[in-house]
Design a protein around this nucleic acid. Structure first.
Lengths: 328, 328
DNA sequence: CTGAAAGCGCTTACAG
DNA sequence: CTGAAAGCGCTTACAG
């Protein structure tokens, strides 16, 4: 397999290099039998074209970056998984780039992808990155943004309707009989965290009860402490996302509060992990797989006609074991 | 930034293209002031070298694939996270490749990485892939294997001492007073699952109690059902990994068994997620970050002198809230 | 439909 | 220490 290039295939097949190139890249431009012969020879030799050389010549590759702040966050892991498939089906090769929410890292990836001739990229930004700054990069123009609404820059976006999601959680809880419903923000890193919090404040009847609004992994612990210290406790809690819900339930349990007997908890995301939590988590599901494939479509559309679509998907309620009626 | 190539920098700096190349790639081969001048001009123009063109010419790149079966498994996610950093520090660019445990996908990645001139790769194989078959690929010779012992092919490996890990779990449980200690295998996908099971059988005093040995995500549920149906139940359970432990605890809880009051559970992996589980999981920690950087070192060592090192790391017990003494 | 030529952006012996 | 030349593995107008 050493030194297998287009020229050795050409020689072996008795044609010119350019004909071999066409046989692979523009089959309709080659006589059928010539092409078949070339392909057979290539197959026999075990030849495949060098994507490197192709990208250099064509000035475009099939490498598509997915830029996320943290892959150990299961939301991004699930996104990465489904997008790998969505990209593969369309002939792209997804390249996962993890930034840790860092501006400089993000910028580094953008210039790298530019020089790798990536046709476009998908970014799920953390709050710490400034989209407008990203747009200063050449590659910024070819980005589509997931999970963050940003209409002002001609950037295509795909998000889930945060307000509708919080509404679903409220409807479910109220139908169970809950009236005092608290909220825990926490592990931010995404702009949707803010949208969800806003929706909660709008939809809460009476006084909103925000147990914690921190953005770190200790939010659950603080929320539980706050809850324990309250005189008039809420009977149910909505968490800004599933990871926060896990933390809240766990911290609540270590203080002796049982879910859902003592207090109901609803998450937001619909992570597969939630089904295996103790108790299995009732949550608002985001259609993660759809987000991935739609992001790719938006990117292709923008490349084709310059249009920046903004797709908002509908969330869905997943009722499991972390919610029940309030104590009589 | 359009059409910025080595030649425009050369022209602007008044030197030959080859001098610009050296200024970047072999600084000691250029007179200091020439180099500084070139670098200044490049900086002003916003020029960086094309990694594509470099790889094509040098026949080696800095792209290092990390091949894992499933990124939504937090073990692989944590591995990916720490390896991204370890690779970055050494001047490599980690490229995450997700196979879903599929042979064909894996093979596809190997040929792709070969044609991208990757210097080496790291693979955390699922049980379904045959390492020996992988070695048939040119790129197979440049692989280092994580979490799977495989001495027979000159492949470097880095693993954790499974037997020692299980031993730690037993020691902890026995010191708490447990005598009947069960085991749940499950979510395999890794060869270490087998090693851990073997260690359990060896170390169990009296009759081993294997509650479930399945390899799917339902293992927890079946194990809990089995447990509930037993006359003489174990007072503690060791799970083959943290994800299985989560499933077992959750399924146990839904049948009314409380952890650790009714039964203690120990996991294996040391996932960050375990600290936020309900209850926080006692577990055998694998030094995931070390595994990543050692894998890279082994790969570099093999590239340098052809040697295939086999590193076995020590696990460590993390005592949290899922274990306690047995019911009196 | 096929071939010959130029060139994508680099590197690296080889001279000087 | 620097330059000129050849070449990595391809693609794509341009002829024929």
């Amino acid at each position: 397999m050493a030194d297998l290039s287009i020229d050795v295939v050409a020689r072996e097949a008795g044609v010119h290099r350019s004909t071999v190139s066409r046989a692979f890249s523009r089959p309709e431009a080659v006589k059928a039998e010539t092409r078949e012969h070339i392909l057979r020879v290539a197959e026999k030799l075990g030849y495949t074209m060098s994507p490197l050389a192709q990208a250099l010549r064509r000035k475009t590759s099939t490498l598509v970056p997915l830029i996320v702040p943290d892959i150990t966050n299961p939301f991004f892991a699930e996104l990465a998984k489904t997008m790998t498939e969505a990209a593969g089906e369309r002939g792209y090769q997804l390249m996962l780039c993890v930034t840790n929410g860092d501006d400089v890292q993000t910028a580094g990836y953008l210039t790298a992808m530019q020089s790798l001739y990536a046709p476009f990229g998908i970014i799920a930004p953390s709050t710490r990155v400034d989209i407008d700054a990203l747009m200063q990069f050449d590659f910024g123009q070819r980005l589509v943004v997931i999970d963050r609404v940003d209409q002002n820059a001609g950037v295509p976006t795909v998000t889930v309707d945060s307000r509708r999601g919080i509404e679903l959680a409220f409807e479910h809880l109220r139908s169970l009989g809950h009236r005092r419903i608290g909220y825990v923000s926490g592990i931010a890193g995404t702009h949707t965290a803010q949208d969800r919090m806003d929706a909660y404040r709008d939809l809460a009847e009476g006084e909103p009860i925000v147990l914690d609004s921190g953005a770190d992994s200790e939010a659950g612990g603080r929320a539980a402490a706050h809850f324990a210290a309250m005189a008039d406790r809420p009977t149910a809690i909505i968490a800004a996302n599933d990871m926060v819900a896990f933390g809240v339930i766990s911290a609540l349990a270590s203080r002796g509060f049982r879910v859902p007997e003592d207090v109901s908890v609803v998450g937001f995301d619909g992570l597969a992990l939630g089904a295996r939590f103790n108790p299995a988590l009732t949550t608002v599901r985001q259609p993660i797989a759809d987000m991935g494939s739609i992001a790719i479509e938006l990117a292709e559309k923008k490349a084709a006609d310059g249009s920046a679509g903004h797709i908002v998907l509908e969330p869905e309620l997943l009722v499991r074991a972390s919610t029940a009626g309030p104590r009589p």
